[in-house]
Design a protein around this nucleic acid. Structure first.
Lengths: 331, 331
DNA sequence: TATGTTTTTGATAACGCTTTCAAAACCTTT
DNA sequence: AAAGGTTTTGAAAGCGTTATCAAAAACATA
């Protein structure tokens, strides 16, 4: 069987207390014993059982990451960066897809809390509001990622969605577009992005109609269907802002199906700047965000909260950029 | 604080042994006490601490899933299906990206074993051979996914890569292609797929040259560069088999960059049949696999191994299909 | 050498659960 | 009512750590 701390203690002729101390670098240990113990540990290739130490109140070094759906590549990117940073700091990440299903949310949360997972990074608007509030109430370390909740006292790291929507729209305005459609989805960040869109119109003094905004499912197909509603009108818009790349690619597909050339007769811009943008034809212009910084940041945040219960809450917003490619052009 | 089994026992006026028994449905408990205990548990919203029960030798209900790189959407798909099935059976999945880096492999494995993760699903050829062998030697439940090792006694679930390569090639032959290039990568499955390619040639009595096979990095860019080497030759092939979709899309990009029309002057076929295929122009033909069945299957397999140490080993190969789209045509 | 100080060490009690096995409680039979 | 059988219960040990605090060892001073 695997050696335990007892085996090490016995072989080194010391008590388990001593071994534990050298293991955790706590208390005072004479250089001599420290060396002896370390040697034995190496010899036996001893690996402390984290379950046991977690039971004594230490952390489990696990964080849960909630996403709605890994099929959207932006989430895959998030996962990647969080996992990398987590590993650097000795944390594993447990991936939880919710599919926006409150049942799954709850199953996951319950199981994870039984497991004493240290913290939760949540990139998916919880359908089950109460669940989130309960986590916060119980002082479980939580950080919202890629969306924020103004009404809750909780850490969050996001790109400035409002600003991104604003920038995209303003950019289209600069290209001369006046009638700009929006293909959105039911998510907190989409709402913000659309708010940016509206505000850009106001600032520019360009009126917009609510019926230019259509909300659909969060898939390519959802984007395509929503775009169809926009494109099949007699007064179709000259540009469409997709609230994320998946949606925007759906728009591209809808345009192609109708023989509407992009960008000549329709400009399309997405959001997230995923690798997909460079794959489609024409290449998709998109609002970009510093994905890797965001991921690193949120990981650091949650770990800080884990290791230091009274860490001050923060709401961080990073600034988006514009990646101009081939899908947008002057009117 | 959270209620413990002691609290329940005290309140119900029984011993912890009894509570534990109703919790796990083990031993004989009179209906009366069972009810009383259950009620108290409900009232207190009691959640057993899994760490403690895991320490007593029960499992941790966690499985680790190793992949090289989540940027390839096929891995995202795998993750998704494994996670879904895992959750159905009460298991969480810890995601581990290795980036084909032996250091990361080892870090992950060490950490996970300390955590007493129940089993490993490995979809990524381990650079560190020894590590894999050690897992097997120590009787840690392991299942290889999406690749197999004929030389090791270990469970594996794969699509029949050889057959997939064979089918893709035979299909191209049927279209009249004789000079077929291959863009591959350094992976076990790619080797098999290429073996299928070669064998299809032999069967058809069509000679092929080794220099039509070029191995590159596992990214779009890798595919593009490898394709360049094929396309910039005077006697360029009339078709290219990309060993996975990402590579094949790289091929598409190389063709576009050179103004070579696909499929008119070049047929391209990929492997994996990821959602990407439908996104690119022209839509990519690809060898498909039953992703969701594969994922479900491997999850079931690892869990069976976890729960029943002497479960017989199996090597499962599922059959690939052909998804014909727009990137392939008659010569 | 005796005494006081500082440093190092170890016995032991948790942590929250499971499991075993003997004792207690409950039924049947005579 | 006693004996025998069956079902239900609980005391206690143990899983592998950590943490406390008193005792032991080492060192310093008078």
């Amino acid at each position: 069987m695997k050696p335990t701390i007892y085996d090490i203690a016995r072989l080194a002729g010391v008590s388990t207390a001593t071994v534990s101390k050298v293991l955790n670098n706590t208390g005072r240990i004479s250089e001599k014993t420290r060396e002896r113990v370390t040697r034995i540990m190496d010899d036996l290739n001893y690996r402390p059982n984290m379950l046991a130490s977690a039971m004594k109140g230490k952390s489990t070094y696990q964080i849960a990451f909630f996403i709605p759906d890994i099929d959207n590549p932006i989430y895959a990117q998030f996962v990647k960066h969080i996992e990398v940073r987590g590993q650097e700091l000795g944390y594993n990440v447990v991936l939880c897809s919710t599919d926006n299903d409150p049942v799954k949310e709850e199953r996951h949360v319950t199981l994870l809390r039984q497991r004493r997972v240290d913290g939760f990074i949540i990139a998916s608007k919880f359908k089950n509001e109460e669940l989130l509030k309960e986590l916060i109430r119980d002082d479980v370390p939580v950080a919202l990622f890629a969306h924020e909740r103004a009404d809750l006292s909780v850490d969050s790291i996001t790109v400035d969605d409002y600003m991104g929507g604003y920038m995209a729209t303003e950019y289209l305005h600069r290209l001369g577009h006046r009638r700009i459609g929006v293909v959105g989805e039911d998510s907190i960040s989409a709402v913000e992005r659309i708010r940016g869109y509206k505000n850009a119109h106001e600032t520019a003094g360009i009126p917009f109609k609510e019926d230019l905004i259509v909300i659909g499912g969060s898939t390519y197909q959802g984007g395509e269907e929503a775009a169809a509603r926009l494109l099949d009108r007699p007064d179709r818009p000259s540009a469409i802002f997709g609230c994320n790349d998946v949606l925007a690619i759906g728009v591209l597909q809808a345009a192609k199906a109708r023989g509407i050339p992009v960008p000549d007769e329709l400009s399309v811009i997405g959001f997230d700047d995923t690798p997909l943008c460079a794959l489609v034809t024409p290449k998709l212009s998109s609002v970009s965000m510093p994905v890797s910084e965001l991921g690193k940041h949120v990981t650091d945040t949650i770990i800080r909260k884990i290791e230091q219960a009274d860490a001050p809450k923060q709401r961080i917003r990073m600034l988006p950029g514009l990646s101009i490619r081939e899908s947008t052009a002057k009117l």
